[in-house]
Write a protein that binds this DNA or RNA. Structure first.
Lengths: 350, 350
DNA sequence: GGAGAATTGAGGGACGTCAATCATTTTTTG
DNA sequence: CAAAAAATGATTGACGTCCCTCAATTCTCC
């Protein structure tokens, strides 16, 4: 009735505990036919090793390291905050979380940090990656040396990293595009895309996505040339203000990056019917914008959930478990003013 | 450096292991000043009991029971499927899941089932509740007898149950309303709400939600009287077909319950510009409708996530942990054709 | 100061696994 | 067939906790 133990397996296989243990842990020195019998017994009894007892016995702990960008951008601040929030509950599951902050938007600095990582430093590494040659190379090295590496939020080295946890930015852009189309049902319009910089892969992907959807047949929307604001509110204020004066017939704005505080302020001051606005990341600022009706939709990648999923995936990797059983799908989530989560915690697990 | 053990605590407190153990597990027979010193040491060292070792030692297993409605409605089928999917991974964490199917839409049958549950049957109970007096009474009894009860998907006995895991249906209705408003930017329209039955609390809530939003100032949408189709596709086909013939100027349909296969078929056959359609629950049928562009948005309560969250909450309750640390917020999620999750698993944890 | 009660210490046997050691049995090989 | 090699069995002490017993110490109160 109860879960079978390894002793049950040994008895069922007609071998000693020691032999069953040798098979289970692949210690070698076991005759082929004994291996068969033990595996047969494991099958028959539905034996599963008690991971907790095993970890207890071998004093195993899990050391997981995260390389995340520095800086005060709301998204990464939230990401780091979620990591801190997971620290205590995970700790009681023998998981230690190490967070290392890396200069943002600097592939070389990231590669340097990756190069300094030793296999002995941790059991699994998660890195907010930028797809640069040296980064790919460093990830490949770590993987080759036996350390599982996952990419978080941004992907790189798709052949080497064990998994990517994050949204598909083309999908996110398409989702924004769909919302914009919805809001233009039965009318034409001009849409202004605002990016941080077109050199950023994620921004290009989102732009591609929105372009795909707006270009679908049946639409009559004019996607303007993107304005780049370096993720800065001051640039946003200037550039978007200028664009709106130059083209007062703008009916929609898709802000792909950061600096949205200024965008929301502009909307607050705009006389008459404001354009339809979609932007990314649920932050205190964007939440406030939604609640005050100054913007229409926020596309969020749920950083807390990303961290939770990343930790689950890392645990699975460290245990040598099959990744298929770990959910790692993160879908861009749409927030309108009516389905905002309660400000507290959401998406974490224990 | 390593996590302190109870032996470390005992030493730090200047007492024996036995005394520290007596304090930790409140076995009594300890002098007040010793209690103080041990608690002090626990604080100082940041000691946390190793739950896995403790469970191992006391052979603790968790028995969680779920009362879910029978029937082949896609949502509950998905809910039951998610429960099955969680069975194996949870089992290896000493959690046994028992699922008991209850006649759907039958508060009396549910109350009967609840009445038959003994405290010894399980460590925590999750029930898809209907807010009926006998149900409330049964939940109150179980709680009083010391079994934590949570409500799932549907709430009842808010004073007695330990937590509710599920979406806020008013919020879901509001979200639908917001989407409908978005899709009617700059134009007027008539919206047809379709419910299963107005006796169902969740349907009423959703209807209230959509009414709230459509009634907000600045709108010019006419919310028609709801049509009831008993969650059945055949009724849906008849009723909605009739409504569309009677009022060809319908510009939006909000389907609050089930039977959407027929709704999608109707949309496929409609000549010209079809109405804007929002419905609930991501199922193979609704997913297909989205992908084929026959409907516009699906509001989903993410059953897999609900189950995962419910299990986490139940574990926390069974361990006597603080519920605050368990995320239990489920927000209605919006799916458009562009942010559909990969059909496989999503939202589960291990 | 002494009896009785309260408190404390010491220890042991679980729980299921790991990672050893050492002795014994079986198989292989020349 | 004997010696060497391979395989197996038996056993042990962790890991951190629970739960129990028994004895020793300290305290309380008359």
């Amino acid at each position: 009735m109860n879960k079978p133990t390894l002793l049950d397996v040994a008895r069922a296989a007609g071998v000693s505990y020691a032999t069953a243990d040798r098979v289970l842990n692949a210690r070698g020195g076991v005759a082929e036919k004994s291996i068969q019998r033990v595996q047969r017994a494991i099958e028959d009894l539905g034996y599963e090793r008690d991971l907790h007892a095993a970890n207890l016995s071998r004093r195993r702990t899990y050391a997981f390291r995260f390389l995340v960008p520095q800086g005060d951008h709301a998204f990464f601040r939230e990401l780091r905050h979620s990591l801190e929030a997971e620290r205590a509950p995970r700790r009681s599951n023998r998981i230690s979380i190490f967070v290392q902050e890396i200069p943002a938007l600097d592939p070389e600095a990231l590669a340097d940090a990756l190069d300094r990582i030793q296999v002995s430093d941790c059991d699994c590494l998660a890195v907010v990656a930028t797809d640069a040659p040296r980064v790919t190379q460093a990830i490949t090295r770590l993987t080759a040396q036996g350390m599982p590496v996952i990419t978080l939020v941004g992907d790189a080295a798709p052949d080497a990293r064990a998994a990517y946890v994050g949204i598909d930015n083309v999908m996110a852009g398409r989702t924004a595009g769909r919302l914009i189309r919805l809001a233009h049902t039965g009318r034409t319009g001009r849409i202004l895309p605002v990016v941080g910089a077109l050199t950023a892969r994620d921004h290009r992907d989102r732009l591609d996505g929105v372009r795909e959807v707006l270009g679908e047949p049946g639409g009559s929307l004019d996607l303007m040339a993107p304005v780049a604001v370096q993720d800065r509110a001051d640039r946003m204020r200037v550039e978007v203000g200028q664009a709106l004066r130059a083209a007062p017939d703008i009916t929609g704005i898709y802000s792909i990056g950061a600096g949205n505080r200024a965008l929301i302020e502009i909307m607050a001051q705009l006389p008459g019917q404001r354009p339809f606005v979609v932007l990314h990341e649920l932050t205190p600022v964007s939440r406030d914008g939604l609640e005050r009706g100054l913007i229409d939709a926020v596309i969020d990648q749920m950083p807390a959930r990303e961290i939770a999923v990343a930790l689950d995936v890392m645990k699975a990797l460290a245990d040598g478990r099959d990744l298929a059983t770990a959910a790692r799908d993160i879908t861009p989530t749409i927030y309108l003013r009516d389905n905002l989560p309660v400000p507290g915690r959401q998406g974490d697990t224990t």
